[in-house]
Design a binder for these strands. Structure first.
Length: 607
DNA sequence: ATAGGGTTAG
């Protein structure tokens, strides 16, 4: 004990100089604070906050100086909070919360004061972007036995929408709509909600909002526009076309953006005949078709493999006096390249040049893709070099992605890695597809080390792997016969990366196992699949078909047992096929196991 | 507000 005290004194003695400095300066600092306080406070918080005998009415009292009893007086709180709401929203909230803590009775407040208090607070917090506070204020109201009235909800919705707080707006509506007495008759509230739902992709509620809106009056052109956006985003082409009809009937002008969006809805729903009909309607309506109209439909034809129609449409567009844009040429070039119609792609390219169309990153990238597809990697790289020479336009992530894949595909892994470096030097961040392409490049020559490094880099640079990544890794591990690692990949890494355990990943690995005659592992993987989902009959059919073909009858029987345990269906024909194979190969034990599984699967076992 | 280029999958 004594030695401790001694030690402490010794320590203090050694630090005596430092300690004296501390004392002196500390003292000075404290004095400075004490003496300069009123001044600083005055400057920082404004004159209104300092005790002064004659306070003007617009000035609020600082929270620290408020008499706790005042906080229980509704009238005082309402006026003070309302004052602060104008310019000091945080202080208003603080004062309000202090009053709540002091037991201000919201329940017993006069209705008018209560409305004023919450209306001012709610609008003030939304105005500064704190819509979550608005929601908690409304919850306070309800907790105290009062309800959010239509006018408060109305101003909250409108403000939230104008501040682009779409999700908050919907959350506020959801909370208030729990009150069955609340009746919203204001059309603009429904307009706002519809817009918010579209913006946040909350498509399941758009129709409901639109119905409620129509119950309050005629929808505006913007409301129709939002509904068309909804229809297009969900590929609901019937709804989209119906909306146009509805607009015509309501004598609402349909502008080209709305028409084009409806056209896009038809195209994305693969309703090309409907889209074509709509184009004709648009031409008849007059003044609403533009390049975008034709490009939208042209892309639809290209995607459907109808390059003949696509090209016809392009000619029609020119015939009608519209000039093709870079996008038009991009669609045509890409379409012909995908169709392996190189000469036609070259024709388009030449027309493009002749018409003086400027190249851009997308057009260059499309050309690079064309050469890559034709196996002319050197040509592809040459386009890339040309592109780099033009300072105004630089390759982007997609350009590099294509170049990297092109190099990987012909086994030039070194060059692909150089491209990766070049893209980083250009300030571009490799994304998932880039990493996937590089990982895919590791498969052929089993570059396990490189693949692991790339995967590590992917994770450490916060690029999330996807189902595609795992599918590629399965191929890699299977090629290199790293079966343990492949199983761990699905068992551990997949959940670790929060990638959804899609059945086909397990199916893919199980098939790889079978192909390499890894029967035990195949059934292990199948069992893993049954732990996350019920295998489909189609999946069972594929696996059992392979088992039969590869003469892996034990594995087939095992899979059928596992399928039965998981309540999965097995096609009777597949079971019969297995049984027949076992009979042919004279395997009585396997036949026994198969029959047992068939009983479990409720399948008829013939003699 | 609306249109074009990239990865997996036997």
């Amino acid at each position: 004990m004594e030695s401790v005290i001694e030690l402490a004194f010794e320590g203090l003695y050694m630090l005596r100089i430092e300690l004296s400095f501390l004392l002196v300066f500390g003292g000075l600092w404290a004095a400075g604070r004490v003496f300069s306080r009123p001044d600083k406070a005055r400057k920082a918080q404004g004159a209104a906050l300092v005790r002064r005998p004659s306070r003007r009415p617009e000035e609020a009292v600082p929270l620290a100086n408020v008499d706790p009893k005042k906080l229980q007086e509704p009238g005082w709180v309402v006026s003070q909070v309302s004052l602060l709401c104008r310019s000091q929203v945080q202080k208003a909230l603080e004062l309000y919360r202090a009053a709540m803590r002091q037991g201000l009775s919201v329940k017993d407040m006069p209705t008018e004061g209560c409305q004023q208090l919450y209306s001012n607070l709610v609008t003030a917090v939304i105005r500064v972007g704190q819509a979550d506070d608005a929601l908690s204020l409304m919850k306070d109201l309800r907790r105290n036995g009062r309800s959010v009235d239509a006018s408060l909800l109305c101003s909250a919705t409108k403000l939230c929408t104008s501040k682009q707080l779409f999700a908050d707006c919907l959350a506020i509506y959801d909370f208030t709509s729990q009150d069955p007495k609340l009746d919203i008759q204001d059309k603009s509230v429904w307009s706002c909600l519809l817009f918010c739902a579209v913006e946040t992709k909350g498509f399941h509620r758009c129709s409901h909002f639109f119905d409620r809106l129509k119950a309050c009056g005629a929808p505006s052109p913007k409301d129709f526009g939002n509904m068309v956006r909804f229809a297009s985003s969900t590929s609901n082409w019937r709804l989209a076309l119906n909306l146009i009809d509805e607009m015509h009937k309501a004598q609402v002008e349909v502008d080209s953006v709305v028409y084009n969006t409806v056209l896009a809805a038809c195209v994305s729903a693969e309703q090309l005949d409907q889209a074509r009909k709509l184009l004709d309607d648009m031409v008849e309506a007059g003044g609403v078709t533009d390049v975008i109209t034709y490009n939208t439909l042209a892309k639809g034809y290209a995607k459907a493999g109808r390059m003949d129609m696509c090209f016809e449409l392009y000619k029609l567009m020119r015939g009608r006096g519209l000039n093709p844009s870079q996008v038009t040429y991009g669609i045509l070039l890409d379409g012909f390249i995908n169709d392996n119609e190189v000469e036609k792609a070259v024709d388009i390219f030449n027309t493009m040049r002749a018409e003086g169309c400027q190249m851009n990153t997308v057009l260059y990238t499309t050309l690079i893709k064309g050469f890559a597809r034709a196996g002319q990697v050197d040509q592809a790289v040459q386009i890339y070099e040309e592109m780099r020479k033009e300072r105004s336009m630089q390759p982007d992530v997609i350009t590099f992605s294509i170049l990297i894949k092109a190099n990987c595909d012909v086994g030039r892994l070194e060059d692909a890695l150089k491209m990766l470096l070049a893209m980083k030097e250009a300030g571009l961040k490799p994304d998932e597809v880039v990493f996937n392409n590089l990982l895919g490049g590791c498969i052929n020559d089993c570059k396990m080390e490189l693949a692991k490094d790339l995967y590590k880099e992917m994770i450490s640079s916060n690029v999330k792997p996807s189902v595609a990544t795992f599918s590629i890794l399965i191929r890699l591990y299977a090629q290199c016969k790293r079966w343990d690692e492949a199983v761990d990949l699905l068992r551990q890494e997949l959940p670790e990366q929060r990638v959804s355990p899609e059945p086909r990943l397990f199916g893919q690995l199980a098939q790889c196992c079978l192909r390499d005659r890894q029967g035990r592992r195949a059934s292990e993987v199948y069992k893993m699949l049954t732990e996350t989902s019920t295998p489909t009959a189609a999946m069972n059919s594929t696996l059992l078909g392979m088992c039969a073909k590869l003469n892996m009858l034990d594995t087939g029987a095992e899979i059928m047992h596992l399928a039965a345990n998981a309540n999965s269906r097995v096609d009777p024909r597949d079971a019969a096929m297995m049984l027949e194979a076992a009979l042919r190969k004279k395997k009585p034990q396997v036949m026994g196991a198969l029959k047992e599984a068939m009983v479990k699967l409720n399948l008829p076992v013939h003699a």
